[in-house]
């Protein structure tokens, strides 16, 4: 009994951790391109989920079409955000940009409330909700899907940044925008790409978790904090680190809450976060981030 209980805690932790990881990836993308934390990331996630709800439930589109449409809408939102808010502030200090993202998150949250109302919404499970049994513990197909999509995205990102010209240009522009510009890379456009990508990632996270998580206009803050913690844990610059950060956060939280007390569930994540910031501010998996210090 205890073994299957602990196994369930771990599986739940991995499943939730994959959600945190998926959200954390968006943070790392924008941090890499502009060295800011995008506090509107949680809102991208929520709007992705709610837009999918509208396309699927209200507009009766087939589920895959609805999901893609939602991702597209949020991607455009990310582009608009960069063009109308971040780009005009290109000479501003990081702190001003971060405050601008906080403003954006409030704007998006309120906008979402006006568009979708105040109630929570959910989507059907993509592959049914019949749980799989693993030695007495259970996992849902949707959770496996989230883990899989997280892995696909992180591998895809690695390949993209290493093998494609655009990916390399984005990387170069993020490491040294001036030098990149001298090499003929349009650094500003690269920043726009990273906002588009990060918004799209947020939306992918949103539509994937909507069947499990009830989304309402205010859900973004809590999801954003979890993703942010995972990103910090992973070192903020490293997508692979963000995934590992998310998974560890999920497992620590679930096992801690299960074995110690559920009263500490939220506290455990924050304690881990504080400890990482105190002991190793660059994040547990943040070694790759040091290369940017040359700048």
């Amino acid at each position: 009994m205890l073994l299957s209980k602990v196994l369930q805690f771990v599986i739940t932790g991995v499943a939730n951790g994959a959600i945190y990881a998926l959200i954390a990836l968006g943070f790392t993308l924008i941090y890499n391109s502009r060295q800011i934390i995008n506090f509107a990331q949680g809102e991208f996630v929520v709007i992705g989920g709610m837009a999918a709800y509208t396309f699927y439930v209200t507009a009766h589109l087939p589920l895959p079409v609805a999901l893609l449409a939602a991702i597209l809408v949020v991607t455009l939102l990310g582009v608009a955000f960069e063009r109308f808010v971040i780009l005009p502030l290109k000479n501003a200090a990081s702190i001003s940009l971060i405050i601008a993202t906080i403003g954006m998150s409030i704007f998006l949250r309120t906008g979402a409330m006006l568009i979708w109302g105040k109630e929570a919404m959910t989507l059907p499970h993509f592959f049914g909700d019949k749980p799989w049994n693993i030695m007495g513990a259970t996992i849902l197909p949707q959770q496996i899907f989230i883990i899989a999509i997280t892995l696909v995205i992180v591998v895809g990102m690695q390949l993209f940044f290493r093998l494609t010209v655009t990916g390399k240009a984005m990387l170069a522009a993020s490491m040294n925008p001036e030098a990149a510009r001298l090499m003929g890379i349009r650094s500003e456009r690269m920043v726009m790409y990273s906002f588009a990508f990060s918004a799209a990632l947020g939306a992918v996270a949103g539509v994937s978790i909507a069947p499990l998580v009830m989304m309402s206009f205010g859900s973004g803050a809590a999801l954003g904090i979890k993703g942010f913690s995972a990103a910090i844990l992973g070192g903020l610059t490293n997508p692979l680190g963000a995934v590992l950060g998310g998974l560890s956060l999920g497992v620590i939280e679930s096992v801690g809450a299960g074995l110690i007390s559920s009263a500490f569930k939220e506290a455990i994540a924050l304690i881990v976060l504080l400890m990482v910031l105190l002991i190793k501010p660059s994040g547990v998996f943040g070694k790759i981030g040091t290369r940017r210090h040359a700048r």
Partner: peptide, 20 residues
């Protein structure tokens, strides 16, 4: 007796303990 945060997105952990 198990508790959760108002913003919780999953309570499987708490329920596993209750199930026990």
């Amino acid at each position: 007796t198990e508790k959760y945060d108002s913003t919780a997105t999953d309570v499987t952990t708490q329920l596993t303990t209750i199930k026990g």
